[in-house]
Amino acid sequence: MGKRAKLEIMKDILEIIKKNKNSIKPTPLLRKSGLSSASFKEYYVDLIRRNLVKEVINKEEKFIILTDMGFRFLERYRSIVDFIEEFDL
């Protein structure tokens, strides 16, 4: 998997959360992402580490929501990809 594909997968995961009214449980997110559970875990940890998503507990259940940076990432995604292509990075 190329490095740019990694950015695309991150964007897809964030979009799933956003489309789900910015609140989704981990299991449906895994299912909708189409990734293997090992691969999903890797991305999930990475997204939390980068402060693009965060976990919230509501009525003893864990939900995943986008942070402000997560929303900003989605806004800027096209520009970031175009920039990477423009300078062949």
Binding site: K3, I80, I84
Partner: peptide
């Protein structure tokens, strides 16, 4: 700066 902060992309 912001592009790198959001993406952590090494090329940037």
């Amino acid at each position: 700066k912001e592009m790198y902060q959001l993406s952590s992309y090494k090329g940037i």
